[in-house]
Design a protein around this nucleic acid. Sequence first.
DNA 1: CCTCGACTTGACCGTTTGGTCAGGTTTTGA
DNA 2: TCAAAACCTGACCAAACGGTCAAGTCGAGG
Lengths: 252, 252
Amino acid sequence: MTSDHANPPIPGQDDRDADPLSEGAQPAGAVLPPDADDGVTGTRALARQAVEERILNAAEQVFAEYGFKGATMGRIAELAGLPKANLHYYFATKIALYRQVVERIFQIWLEAADAFDGCDRPEEALGRYIRAKMDISRLHPNGSKVWANEILHGAPVIQDYLETTLEEWTNGRMRLIEGWIARGLMKPVDPRTLLYMIWATTQHYADFNHQIHTLNGGEPLSDEQFEAVRETVVSIVLRGVGIDPDPRTGAD
Amino acid sequence: MTSDHANPPIPGQDDRDADPLSEGAQPAGAVLPPDADDGVTGTRALARQAVEERILNAAEQVFAEYGFKGATMGRIAELAGLPKANLHYYFATKIALYRQVVERIFQIWLEAADAFDGCDRPEEALGRYIRAKMDISRLHPNGSKVWANEILHGAPVIQDYLETTLEEWTNGRMRLIEGWIARGLMKPVDPRTLLYMIWATTQHYADFNHQIHTLNGGEPLSDEQFEAVRETVVSIVLRGVGIDPDPRTGAD
DNA sequence: CCTCGACTTGACCGTTTGGTCAGGTTTTGA
DNA sequence: TCAAAACCTGACCAAACGGTCAAGTCGAGG
């Protein structure tokens, strides 16, 4: 704070703020200096972006493994391959780093949510959404774990996301589901409970993957196993809301 | 370690061991001094049991809220209403305290598991089990959170439980489900995936209750809301495995 | 009433950890 | 070529935390 060089006029985006937790930032990806967008200009900015990416990846892994308090800046720095002091050059505080990790995760989450839209048949929308979320659990288990950890401990950092973006998204999808029900395309189940069930089940395969591996003889699920699980989940949920997932026999 | 009084001949049970995590204890509830059972004898032992209970409750709450590393002995002591040094008289180390908290949770988990047995109709067994697990999430959210946190971070303390008790229980229930499938009482879904789905969904209402409250307008679910959710979950799962939860029409 | 062991506690200690800082080196732009 | 800005890093610091210890108090048995 008193120094003047650990917080230079940074090309990319950086600390945002160093509050003692709580409150977040913009809809993410919004406010950027009119220079950095994604196709960064100079070689300098490009290098910076690469280093930041490396740090964020390391941080995601360490935060997922040890939780916020259990993760240490030293371990993150070691995993990212640079000295701890240098890490503080890019991210002013541990909380600032953590927040960016969580924001990145939320972006992925929202992108999967798009699978819900674009078609008006529940079996296709729900199926696509479940598969997308299962694939995220397969590809980004650490991200999901960090998210789970954050919620588990009362969402001290992302409370505002829950109250704004997530709530809006949820309400929109609930209306969609209610529309399907009204048109008789599926049984009248509570849409919110259905969404929670999908979240819980899909994220379970990331958050609890250690337990799943243990009960799988100590081995991670193979690609074939995972695909079978994914399709089983899809069919149980679809059948659970009154849609026959197997097109051989008509159901509704 | 060098001292001789912080680890006295304790009437109840205590430290077990102070390893740097990993490895656990017996099938839990087994090896006890031939005195302490549940009906403790002297007023002394009774007082001790009461204090230990108070500490364990405080610890469960603090561990659930902050995670293992984030929880501090000071906060636990404060919540239990005694000085930190006194807490170390009852539980030698933080890990020893944590382990007892987790063991207690596992016991509750196993008791709910009994709901699975005692009848041979899947709709009744599954329904009872789901309801029991939902009620646990309602009554012991902190316990569930500690458990989730433990698995999330790779089960450093309860790995042996996963590999022994939990695996045996799971295999037994899977065979039961396979029997139901073989007799045509439900659709042929992968039993393991079904169990995971039930675990994920029911525990979601404990582990993610903060998110659920936020999306419920900042208020916890009322008893009525929770009961509705519980029955919705039961009916989606039952219908999902080909059992009509609504007895008006025959399904299988 | 006295003794001995169970229990209690304030003060203290060594370690870990997030963060700082001064003094570098490298890159950029004029 | 040269200065200024950006970037890098070993050494350091204060706070927090788990755990220890000596000096107690309390209560049951003799």
